Every structure is written in structure tokens, then in C-alpha cells.
Amino acid sequence: MRGETSRISDRVSRDSLAPELRNAGEDTWRIGNELFSFTNLLDHNVRIERALTEPSRSAEDKVALLRSLIGDQAHPVTMTILSDLASRQWSRVRDVANGVEDFGVDAMMYYADATGTTLQVSIELAELHSALLGLSVVRSRLYDESVPAQARIDLLHSLLNGKNFNKVTMRLAEHATCNPRKRRYLATIQWMINKFSRHMGESMITVTTAVALTTEQVDKLVTFYTNKLGRAVHINSVVDPSVIGGMRVQVGDEVTDNTVVAQLHKLQRAVKASA
């Protein structure tokens, strides 16, 4: 968890620069990619992190360091964001990389806004999360940093073979794969889903069933969870015949699994325990 100083620095920086980032339009695709690349650079170069967070070092020196690292190749908004983050105080050295990553995801959200695909990306991230829930071995490989990054990305692409995901969804999924940042894969995807939900002003509820939900069932779920959570919700209906029957509902990090297959697994464990 971030210290209070880091949380304040991250929030103030993102709030103050949000209009400039939003106004960059479709350039936010480039900005987001540049910020993800710089996040990766910081994660693998603690000396640079320390140089950019050293309280006794002037803001001018830090900006000069940034320019020496990225030259004139980066988008001006990317440089503005990095300069702003470098000028702030951080509780821990590694928190500056968290701030850069936060901006990277924000940039991808604004790109989705600019291309009219924000809800689509949010739904696709939820579908990816749901698809991986029962694949613990695959998940562990996706964030195993002992496996080369390209091999992990190839595994992700093979897993999503035939899925025509939006390019923002794919880029976010690839970022989570090639730079795990010491997080479990599903934790990173859930963090991104939560960010998109807050961005849209509603919560994403993923409901997995063996057959498609009817309109009436979706409406009842919307009413129930809107009343329960006290805010607007979107129901992401995922059809997975392997669950056989029943319903699995995911709200944020909380999963309630009342599917037939889950009950069968529970029964099997009980039988083995009593044998």
C-alpha cells in the first residue's frame, strides 16, 4: 500500500493534469504506451527511481535527468506528466513508478473515450478476468517473471485466440503480462476494471451462467445491485456452458459462486475429507 504522502502526490498530479491528458484526444494511445514503457524502466532501475524521488535534488535537475533519458522523442504531454511526478514528494522510492503507471492506464481510458469504446473495454477486461478464474496454472505463468516476457505475451495471445478484443483491452492485458510489477495477474486486471468503473461512474457486475440471461433477469440484477451498492451498475453477462447451471457473480474482488460445477467441486472435497 502507498503511504499518505504518495497517495496525495498521485491524486493531486492526476487531478491537475487530467484536463490536459483528456484533451490530447487519440494521442493518448501514444502517451499511454510511453508511460507504460517508462514504468518498466523505473521498475528495473532503482537508481533512476531514487534520483527522481530524492527530496534534496531540485526539480530542474530531475527534469534534466528525464530529458537525458527520453530525449525529444516522447510526446509533450508525457514529458509534462513525468516532470510533474518528479517534482512531488513520495513516501517510498518505488511509488513514483506506481504514479507513472496510474497515468498510463488513465491515458488508455481517455483513448477509449476518444474512440467511443470505454464500456467495451471495461466489459472485455471483465470477460478476461472471468475466463481466467478457473485457470490457476495459466494465471501463474502469466505473472511468472522467471519466464521471458515474450513467452508470457505469446501465452496470453494463445489464450485469447479468436477473441476480437479492442486494442486498448489487449494493450492493458499485455502490460499486465509483460510487467507484472510483483502483482498477481488477476489482481492487476481487477484493478484496471475498478479504474474503468470509477471512470464511468458505475460498478461492473460480472455474472457467469451456462446460458444467456434474459432481459428480465438482467433488469432484476441491475435493480438488486443498484440498491445494494447505492450506485449505478452494469451487468456483464458471460456465458460459460462448463458451469452447467446456477450463477457466479463477481462484484469487485468478491466472487459468489453458486454454479452447479462449483457445488460439485465442493461435494467432492467434502467426500474426500470424510473418506
Rank of each mutant, 00 (worst) to 15 (best):
M1Q: 06
M1C: 03
S6H: 12
I8P: 00
D15T: 14
S16E: 13
L17T: 04
L17Q: 07
L17A: 06
E20Y: 15
L21G: 01
D27P: 00
T28C: 11
R30C: 05
N33S: 11
S37L: 12
S37E: 14
H44M: 06
V46P: 08
R47K: 13
R50A: 10
D61L: 05
D61T: 05
L65N: 03
R67D: 09
L69T: 03
L69P: 08
G71T: 03
A74Y: 15
S87Y: 05
R88W: 00
Q89S: 15
V93F: 09
V93A: 05
R94Y: 08
D95W: 09
A97I: 03
N98Q: 06
D106R: 13
D106P: 11
D106I: 02
D106L: 14
M108Q: 10
T118K: 02
Q120W: 02
S122D: 13
E124T: 08
E124M: 02
L125A: 07
L125F: 05
E127V: 04
H129K: 05
A131N: 08
A131K: 07
S136F: 04
D144N: 14
E145H: 02
V147D: 05
Q150L: 14
R152M: 04
I153V: 15
I153N: 02
D154P: 07
L156P: 09
S158L: 13
L159F: 15
L159W: 15
L159S: 07
F165W: 14
N166W: 06
V168T: 09
M170A: 10
R171N: 15
A173P: 02
E174H: 03
H175G: 00
T177F: 02
T177V: 04
N179P: 00
R181I: 05
R183N: 13
R183L: 13
Y185P: 00
Y185E: 02
Y185L: 02
Y185A: 03
A187R: 10
A187I: 04
Q190W: 04
M192H: 12
I193A: 05
G201P: 08
S203A: 14
M204R: 10
M204W: 07
I205K: 07
T209C: 12
A210D: 04
A212W: 00
A212S: 15
L213T: 03
T214P: 09
D219F: 10
L221P: 00
Y225E: 06
T226I: 02
A232Y: 09
I235N: 03
V243G: 06
I244S: 06
G246K: 03
M247S: 10
V251T: 15
D253A: 09
N258G: 14
N258L: 13
N258A: 15
T259H: 01
L264S: 08
H265W: 07
H265R: 12
A270Q: 14
V271K: 12
V271R: 14
A275H: 14
